[in-house]
């Protein structure tokens, strides 16, 4: 069975926009493949349509059956990692072989605080209208 591994420098998964995400990738393959590819991407999950963005790709062409390589990506300014009840946005590093179905993922968090932003529902208290107006609550 093929083994693909992503190891981050200092196991750092909490990152800020503009940070460098670096580490090593290694693999042990049973058969020769054309290339091993490392991708930095984000994707959404939840109730509705999914969206994804491929930010950067690093290709290791004609790889030997067992090898270890280092990588280094600079994170863009956004989007931030966030979660609400309807949608989550997740950043990940994805290592895969071509051809083949093997894939290894390492989730990272990208936000100004280094933590996933949690979206909460707004309460009437949160919605402050000017001039002391109140949020209408149903029929009079």
């Amino acid at each position: 069975m093929d083994t693909l591994t992503i190891q981050l420098e200092q196991n750092k998964t909490a990152l800020r926009p503009g940070d460098v995400v670096a580490g090593t990738v290694s693999w042990k393959l049973e058969e020769q493949v054309r290339q091993v590819e490392l991708r930095l991407l984000w994707y959404t999950q939840g109730k509705g349509d999914e969206d994804a963005g491929l930010v950067e790709t690093m290709t290791f062409a004609q790889p030997s059956l067992s090898d270890q390589r280092s990588f280094r990506f600079t994170l863009p300014n956004g989007p931030y990692s966030f979660s609400g009840s309807l949608i989550s946005l997740t950043w990940t590093l994805e290592l895969s072989t071509r051809p083949g179905d093997n894939c290894e993922r390492k989730e990272i968090t990208v936000s100004p605080t280094g933590r996933e932003i949690l979206l909460q529902g707004l309460t009437d208290e949160d919605v402050k209208l000017p001039f002391g107006l109140k949020v209408p609550t149903g029929s009079p």
């Binding site: 999950q45 939840g46 109730k47 509705g48 349509d49 999914e50 979660s83 609400g84 009840s85 309807l86 949608i87 989550s88 997740t90 949690l118 909460q120 529902g121």
Partner: peptide, 13 residues
């Protein structure tokens, strides 16, 4: 709140 990515009925699942 259950995060969307943890919801077992998320579209990707």
């Amino acid at each position: 709140m259950l995060r969307a990515k943890d919801n077992p009925f998320a579209v990707d699942r």
